[in-house]
């Protein structure tokens, strides 16, 4: 039973105007929460859709739970759970009815009551879908992805557009999926979500995987895992002269300078001295650990949100 939950080799998908997936290799082990992190348009959703059998790949191999679409389509559908980026239901269907109906499509199903409890929708079980909040609708979509007691669950941007509290609620559901022994593959463009939920990550950009690893290892792999920030009132000044005086790279952001370093303890006194000497009008100093955002920035030169 050491077979992988998901194995991709050389996956490619081209649309008339854009190469959406440009040769992706991935291995997801059973029982892990695996994240595809990347900005909008990186190819995350297309990669998922190809895996889920919604879109046909131009080339490449897909093995899901040791099965292939060519030979085992129906069995794959019975054993995976899918939450699409936007799940559209009838306005006047209730969560209970939706779970009963979708459950009836599968040979093996979980009880509706149990699912409602899992996503904490018992009180809204008989309310029309259209009356549910965004977070409740999204929790229902997660419950629908679990109706068949799936071994492998795909979640496409499960928390996009939700408020912080609703996001935490969804994170709890994903953690419970993992606790129940399911494999979860999710996409996100939130680095905090990737860090909080994922055992391992693949960072995607322009249809390619540019880095794979645990969140901690991806950050540790940065040569400069700490960042000192000098914040300014208003727009940060041009750091070119200061950069030369300090002898280190200084990256200007909106209202701050970032100075990546492997050793903030040694840097700090030197930095403050140089800033004093150059009369840099900074307001505050922060030291923070690098995040996945910095990993992405370092690898692509661009921010995740751009």
């Amino acid at each position: 039973m050491t077979e992988s939950a998901l194995r991709l080799r050389g996956l490619r998908k081209t649309f008339p105007k854009v190469v959406a997936v440009a040769g992706v290799d991935l291995d997801v082990a059973r029982g892990e929460v695996f994240g595809l992190l990347g900005p909008n348009g990186a190819g995350k959703t297309t990669t998922l859709e190809v895996i889920e059998g919604l879109t046909e790949a131009d080339s490449g191999e897909i093995e899901i739970l040791g099965l292939t679409w060519a030979r085992n389509g129906r069995e794959i559908r019975s054993r995976i759970g899918v939450q699409l980026q936007s799940t559209s239901l009838f306005n006047k269907i209730t969560p209970r009815e939706a779970l009963d109906l979708y459950g009836s499509y599968y040979p093996r199903r979980r009880g509706t009551e149990e699912l409602l409890a899992l996503v904490q929708l018992e009180e809204k079980a008989d309310a029309y879908h259209i009356t549910l909040s965004g977070g409740q609708q999204q929790r229902l979509a997660l419950a629908m992805a679990l109706v068949n007691d799936p071994e492998l669950v795909f979640l496409d941007e499960p928390t996009t557009g939700l408020d912080p509290q609703a996001r935490r609620g969804l994170w709890d559901v994903v953690r419970r999926m993992k606790a129940e022994g399911r494999t979860v593959v999710l996409t996100t463009h939130y680095m905090d979500e990737a860090e909080a939920l994922c055992d391992r990550l693949a960072i995607m950009d322009h249809g390619k995987v540019i880095a794979t690893g645990t969140p901690a290892s991806l950050i540790a792999d940065l040569a400069l895992p700490s960042i000192v920030e000098l914040t300014f009132e208003g727009t940060a000044p041009d750091p070119a002269a200061f950069e030369a005086a300090l002898g280190l790279r200084v990256e200007p952001r909106m209202d701050l300078w970032e100075i990546p370093t492997p050793d903030p303890k040694t840097l700090l006194p030197r930095l403050l001295e140089a800033a004093e000497a150059a009369a840099v009008p900074f307001q505050q100093v922060h030291i923070r650990r690098a995040t996945l955002e910095d990993v992405f920035l370092h690898r692509t030169g661009r921010s995740l949100r751009e």
């Binding site: 889920e52 059998g53 919604l54 129906r74 559908r77 019975s78 995976i80 899918v82 699409l84 936007s86 799940t87 559209s88 239901l89 979708y102 499509y105 599968y106 040979p107």
Partner: peptide, 13 residues
């Protein structure tokens, strides 16, 4: 347009 068919397509129905 709203993706209802797509949601059905990932089930064995």
């Amino acid at each position: 347009e709203k993706g209802k068919f797509r949601r059905l397509a990932v089930t064995p129905l």
